[in-house]
Design a protein around this nucleic acid. Structure first.
Length: 972
RNA sequence: GCGGGUGUGGCGAAAUUGGCAGACGCAUCAGACUUAGGAUCUGAAGCCGCGAGGCAUGGGGGUUCGAGUCCCUCCACCCGCACCA
């Protein structure tokens, strides 16, 4: 009986569905465990082998936890709103809901092939009204809330209104408008519109104005990566920054909470560091620089606020720099500099933010204005440059060239004199950002260590009323609207320029069906073209992709609830996601937004935990391993015979390597002459030109020439210059997996050839889940052979059934229990690749022992079931339904619900250890010594050993190091 | 420019806590069984050297009886980004 994986896998996949073995209940006496994969976007390209890597890892872990006695929630669904479907609709006129549906269907088929243990009854799709009703509902909660800084928590906006009525905003400064001050009397006197505008500056979800990449020619807003060199990627039309009304989430208010929460979750240090760098909390001061009277056309008394983290360097400030977008720029620019500044602004405007980041060249322009140093009233020139960003701090800096690299380069470039305040710490060649120097040229700070001077300067600024302590965050509020169609509509109605929320009972506000996906007038979303929508004064923006994905992990707990987004009972039971697996690309986007939403929902009393993900594992990227063939191009073509000119000629890669090592193409040319009739060949020289070839027609690096000829019609008559053994060898390059490079591999093909169990194990065998690595199909055979070998422990091709009920020997039990222990440890620490190796070692050893005993095999199958569920269920079924047990298939329990075996130490203990014996750190021999031997006994055994003696000849032993259980080292 | 990651045989990798570098597999080679082999089994193999032995974890330096692992320094490649004052 042979291993018929196709039949076996089909059979069990069907049976598992019939028997609903993956159905999970919210009621259980068992402890809960929640395993989640990052929400996939169902793209039209389908799955390639890189996608399921994380899903397989999480599936193994979920099945493992189930065997360990947990009630495991392991759901899957789709982040179904998104730009690609809308783009596809624009190009092909197919409604996004139709193409999305189609893509999901294909996606599901591919997933099902792999044999995952998802509870599909809990599937969610963000684009379904039943789901986005609750996305809209949560948005309304955020809209109707503010962040109470005093208690560091989200609170209802109603309580803020009460506060305003009683005491104005003196204890609750507005995060959106820092200068806004009003009393309780003022508040009552404000009209509706004024009150609403004020509240908007407090709301967690609020409306404001923001700059976007606006492309007039396309009439649409572009993402940063759709803008290249200041023009649109598609079409090459000019792109400018344009202010548009946008929705935002006030995530900046949560900055401290988000930093604090990192201490309580199990993310990698790298991931935590990326998040806290992104949040970028910095301590510093805001300092007022008064404009020098008469130096600029602006009114007297104008003040330029700068933000600095190094107030101690204030006497080293040789110039100020303001952002090109800064609101004071126009006012302060002198008449003489006006034209130059305007020219510079025009230059900056044409550049995307991305380009400004990457720019290394120094640019800038003098404004003609001067400011007064707050302490010594020195005149300081004000410059404008794109390296200062309007969105951070105050949009202006005091430049200290001796201490800051960018300021230094700027000063050098524009010949601005540099003041040295740190003495010998500054060498005139480069800036030195030290805090340890003793200050010089710094007035009242002279002689002070820089790090101590920081506080001194801040107190002095505050006492003089020209500055204040200030904590800043690098993070900005999250833009929460898109001028697109395929997203959640905002439950907002505009009346008299005031945004009013829809009533909860009117949710969901359904996305209308449209046929024209073109943007609306003035860059609004396509909804602005819908008459009925406009008539109801509904918001025409839609929500961004991360809206639906910021809370989906809660919906899985209670997916069919139409009264709540998730019942408190369900969220209390399932709580945090215990294990979250996904890529690092979501490090600062999705993972921060979901953490913020969870905190808000927690503060408002809807859930009991305030961090969504307890543990995060990042899967590495699978890169493509491309195969290249080299086509020979002839030079001096006019002399070449027609026949040759039109015949594609390919040369095996090692031949090119050899030729280039020799620096001569002579051998190759001789071979070409051998192939074609010598009389037909007449050319000046040859060059080689690489072409991507489909990796699926290359076996390792050897091209399947027959398949290649069939691959494209123009290659039917191709000629090849081969290696001496008649093979065509390809070149290899590791690059991104993509259709255009012909290096994508579809899991369906591999499953068809080797089965899902082989595929699952091979993906894991490739290397650590966290690590990025190129995909190479060669090697999958080894894993397939392993499963066949496992099968042969049960069935022999000739003899049939060979497993028996004999009592296992100690040696056999040792193999088993060693494996139990190893698999348990490896699976627990997500080291699936070494887990697979351990299974191979176990089967090899049982094979050598000729062990076909049920007592051993039965437990091995349970261990292996999370990795290769189909073959284990099948073999287990054979074991359990045999005549010996008298059980029928009806009584047979699925192996998926077995209990993970316990590793028994008694089979593992050893009394002897084979010690490596090193002399001066180099291993020279091995000695078997009792584990409980004393230092003295060991010395005696070692020093009398013949091999050791040979090495010791004539030398004095200085020391003998003996580490029990590890090794022995003799120092001479 | 900033931030994060990775460098070990021909290839994917292992070495969990500073203790036998290269487990397990692919490819390769030799052999067995076979009408046949792209099935299966047995064996060899890091590199240099006939050998004794020497050299090897991106390069250089250090700590240690002992370093892939710890410290310093340099290099290469990959990923992300909002020039963050």
């Amino acid at each position: 009986m042979e291993y018929k994986f196709r039949d076996i896998e089909k059979k069990w996949q069907t049976k598992w569905i019939e028997e609903q073995v993956y159905k999970v209940s919210n009621q259980s006496a068992k402890p809960k465990y929640y395993v989640l994969d990052m929400f996939p976007y169902p793209s039209g390209a389908g799955l390639h082998v890189g996608h399921p890597l994380g899903y397989i890892a999480s599936d193994i872990y979920a099945r493992f936890k189930r065997l360990k006695g947990f009630n495991v929630l392991h759901p899957m669904g789709y982040d179904a709103f998104g730009l690609p479907a809308e783009q596809y609709a624009l190009e092909h006129g197919i409604h996004p809901s139709v193409s999305t549906e189609q893509n999901i269907h294909n996606f599901r088929k591919q997933l099902d092939n792999i044999g995952f243990s998802f509870d599909w009854d809990r599937e969610v799709r963000t684009s379904q009204p039943g789901y986005y009703k609750w996305t809209q509902w949560i948005f309304l909660q955020l809209f109707n809330s503010f962040f109470d800084r005093r208690n560091q928590r989200t609170a209802k906006i109603g309580s803020l209104i009460k506060i305003f009525e009683n005491e104005g905003n003196k204890n609750y400064p507005s995060p959106g408008d820092t200068v806004l001050r009003f009393s309780e009397k003022d508040w009552v006197g404000f009209d509706e519109k004024q009150q609403q505008e004020i509240l908007m500056n407090y709301r967690v979800a609020y409306c404001g104005y923001g700059e976007v990449n606006w492309c007039e020619a396309l009439g649409t807003v572009l993402a940063n990566d759709e803008v290249v060199n200041g023009v649109s990627e598609r079409g090459g039309y000019p792109v400018v920054r344009k202010k548009l009304r946008q929705w935002y989430l006030r995530i900046t208010e949560y900055a401290d909470r988000l930093i604090e929460g990192l201490e309580r979750i199990d993310f990698s240090e790298a991931m935590k560091e990326m998040q806290s760098n992104w949040i970028g909390k910095s301590y510093g001061a805001e300092i007022d620089f008064r404009l020098s009277p008469g130096s600029s056309p602006g009114p007297d008394g104008l003040v330029l606020k700068v933000y600095t983290t190094r107030p101690d360097t204030i006497f080293g400030s040789d110039f100020l720099v303001i952002a090109p977008e800064h609101e004071l720029l126009q006012q302060i620019t002198s008449v003489e500099q006006k034209a130059a500044v305007e020219g510079y602004i025009a230059h900056v405007k044409s550049r995307s933010e991305r380009e400004r980041i990457a720019e290394k060249k120094i640019t800038g322009c003098f404004t003609g204005a001067f400011a007064l140093h707050p302490f010594n009233q020195k005149q300081i020139p004000i410059w404008v440059s794109e390296y200062v960003l309007a969105g951070y701090g105050t949009g202006a800096i005091m430049a200290v060239p001796c201490g800051d690299e960018r300021d230094f380069r700027f000063a050098k470039y524009f010949n601005i004199p540099i003041t040295n305040i740190i003495g010998k710490y500054y060498n005139g060649e480069e800036a030195n950002p030290t805090k340890d120097a003793i200050l010089e040229n710094s007035d009242f700070l002279n002689g002070m260590v820089m790090r101590d001077a920081i506080e001194v300067v801040i107190s002095r600024l505050e006492s003089l009323g020209v500055g204040s302590r200030k904590i800043n965050y690098r993070m900005r509020d999250a833009a929460f609207s898109r001028q697109r169609y395929w997203g959640e509509p905002f439950p907002i109605v505009w009346k008299d320029a005031i945004a009013y929320p829809l009533d909860e009972k009117d949710l969901p506000l359904e996305l209308p069906l449209i046929e024209n996906y073109r943007p609306g007038p003035e860059g609004e979303g396509p909804l602005a073209n819908v008459e009925s929508w406009k008539a109801r004064k509904l918001e025409t923006n839609t929500m961004p992709g991360y809206a639906g994905s910021s809370w989906y992990f809660l919906r899985y707990m209670d997916p069919h609830n139409d009264r709540e987004f998730c019942s408190r009972e369900a969220s209390d039971y399932w709580g945090q996601v215990d294990l979250y697996i996904g890529g690092t690309e979501h490090a600062v986007g999705h993972l921060l937004y979901s953490r913020m939403w969870t905190k808000a929902l927690h503060d408002l009393g809807y859930i009991s935990h305030d961090e969504p993900f307890k543990k995060l594992v990042n899967q590495g990227m699978i890169q493509g391993s491309s195969r290249l063939v080299y086509r020979v191009d002839f030079q001096g073509e006019e002399n070449i015979h027609e026949k040759i000119k039109n015949t594609p000629l390919f040369i095996s890669y090692p031949l090119i390597e050899k030729a280039s090592a020799l620096g001569s193409n002579e051998t190759i040319i001789r071979k070409i002459k051998d192939i074609f009739h010598p009389g037909l060949v007449e050319f000046n020289g040859i060059t080689f030109h690489p072409l991507h070839v489909d990796v699926n027609i290359v076996n390792g690096v050897e091209l399947d020439i027959g398949a290649f000829k069939k691959w494209k019609p123009e290659y039917t008559n191709a000629f090849f210059i081969l290696e001496d053994d008649g093979k065509y060898i390809c070149d290899v390059e590791v690059e991104k997996m993509s259709k255009s490079k012909y290096n994508t591999v579809n899991p369906d093909d591999l499953i068809n050839r080797y089965g899902a169990d082989t595929f699952r194990m091979y993906e894991m065998f490739l290397g650590p889940v966290e690590q990025s690595k190129p995909w190479d199909t060669k090697g999958i055979e080894g894993v397939h052979r392993f499963l066949k070998k496992l099968w042969r422990l049960f069935y022999d091709e000739q003899k049939g059934k060979i497993w028996n009920n004999d009592k296992a020997t100690d040696a056999e039990l040792k193999v088993l229990h060693k494996t139990i222990k190893k698999i348990e440890e490896d699976t627990e620490r997500f080291s699936f690749n070494t887990g697979v190796s351990s299974f191979m070692i176990c089967v090899n050893e049982l094979y050598d022992l000729k062990c076909h005993k049920r007592e051993v095999l039965e437990k091995l199958l349970i261990l292996l079931a999370p990795y290769a569920p189909h073959i284990c269920e099948e073999l287990n079924w054979h074991l359990q339904t045999s005549s010996e047990t008298g059980q029928t298939s009806r009584e047979r329990p699925s192996i998926l619900s077995s209990t993970f075996p316990k590793a028994e130490e008694k089979y593992l203990i050893e009394s002897l250890k084979n010690y490596p014996v090193a002399i001066n750190g180099k291993t020279r021999t091995e000695l078997k010594i009792a584990l409980d031997a004393t230092q003295q006994q060991v010395e005696e055994i070692v020093l009398t050993d013949l091999t050791v003696k040979k090495w010791l000849e004539g030398k004095q032993v200085k020391k003998l190091i003996y580490v029990s259980c590890k090794m022995i080292n003799i120092v001479l």
